[in-house]
Nucleic acid binder design. Structure first.
Lengths: 233, 233
DNA sequence: CAGGCCGTAGTGGTCCGACCACATCTCTGG
DNA sequence: CCAGAGATGTGGTCGGACCACTACGGCCTG
């Protein structure tokens, strides 16, 4: 009966798919500006409210970006944009799933660290050292955590796989780390963490991928094991 | 000035954070039904339209689920629910990022296969064999792809880490595989893929994690290398 | 002429109220 | 006792109005 709409699913869902398809087919380039919400709604034959929901959905996915007063734009579709929601998983996960997430992180982090050992540039290595020293120079947990994150982030970026780095970023999101950290530091974890970080750094300097992989795996595995023990009690 | 709203960001964004916080704090349990859109809007002091956008956002994140005529419910917050959007990344990625995604998949898939070699049950192994045989018994590319996906999915589930399995599911999403497959099968890839799958299967039967890891890494690496070569031309 | 100021048009953000489509329960009639 | 018809409540959609912000251009001033 109708010329375009096969009428499957909700109107909003259809709009989401159509815009996604436009980008997939290359009709919308990264960075490009879309028509106004009102025009888009007219083109697809739906109301502005429904169109806004579709846009909101694509926005949280990191595909679109809405700038108040300016317009709607396609993001650069980089790994960081699209994998931002990954952090939500970590935030809402609890119990056994936290261990699973840590297991995934251990696998990826060890690989990324190994790659970094082979590819890291002097500049990046200097950055790593900067965060390492800053981390050892203070006792403020908040600051330590901040440099801890930057330490691993720099290494992940040095691995040369932005997608992997973006996933690791999500897995190490602030609240995630902070929550695990809270009870972890009760024991002698501070000193141990410093030793592990130093070990990772030495492997990077030595450009030894296998040592780097082992050090990173042990580092994450340490937390993982502790958390696993916590769950058993 | 105000009693509740710190007035940061858009109203919708605030609503998203608030609902997310409610779940994070455990005030909303998985599977539980939320108040109606109208009530929620009233509670948070915003309009129903804005509340709907917030709900839509949380829906695409896999946190909430709206059932027409029934109500809004919190999902089980399982890995599959939350990582569904991961497939979108694969769908919209192109060029160098496809290689990066395959690299991530290679790392995770090889680990998952190694774990499966140690943990797979006889029932699961029978499933794997079923898909292996079905894959070899037909020439329909569509059917082959379907069993290929199921083959790896079963193995990933046997690894015992649902989160890892969910990520791999996203990375192997239908369109992603199909797109890479299209030109890949021009060469003698069919026979090679069969050999590789058989090799993975043998490693599982032998309960040899290292052999399984190597076989899986080679399997994914094969496609990865082909794609990398394609990009260079 | 150069530069900054300000008005204005256009954009996304929010709100309202109405109606539709669907699921569920309830009440009725057999 | 059960099945069907209805009533009720829910999410889904729509249209229009107004607000908040941005961007651009013309105006005014120095």
């Amino acid at each position: 009966m109708d010329q375009t709409a096969p009428q499957k699913g909700t109107v909003t869902q259809r709009a989401i798919e159509q815009i996604k398809a436009m980008i997939g087919e290359g009709r919308l380039e990264p960075g490009q500006r879309l028509p106004t919400e009102r025009d888009l709604a007219t083109q697809l034959g739906i109301s502005r409210s429904s169109m806004r929901e579709a846009i909101r959905a694509l926005t949280v996915m990191g595909v679109l970006e809405a700038r108040h007063g300016s317009g709607i734009y396609v993001t650069q579709l980089e790994a960081g944009d699209l994998l931002e929601t990954f952090g939500v998983v970590a935030d809402l996960s609890r119990g056994p799933r936290l261990v699973e997430l840590l297991e995934v992180r251990r696998v990826l982090e060890s690989t990324a660290t190994a790659l970094a050992a082979a590819r890291i540039t002097p500049d990046q290595l200097a950055d790593v050292e900067k965060h390492l020293e800053a981390m050892n120079a203070t006792d403020d947990p908040e600051e330590i955590l901040s440099h801890d994150l930057a330490f691993h982030r720099t290494i992940a970026l040095a691995a040369g796989n932005d997608t992997m780095a973006a996933i690791l970023e999500g897995l190490s999101s602030r609240t995630f780390r902070a929550r695990v950290w809270r009870g972890y530091q009760e024991e002698d974890a501070f000193a141990r963490t410093r030793r592990e970080h130093a070990r990772i750094h030495r492997a990077l300097v030595a450009r030894d991928p296998e040592a780097a992989r082992a050090a990173a795996a042990a580092h994450v595995g340490e937390v993982e094991e502790w958390l696993r023990a916590q769950l058993d009690e």
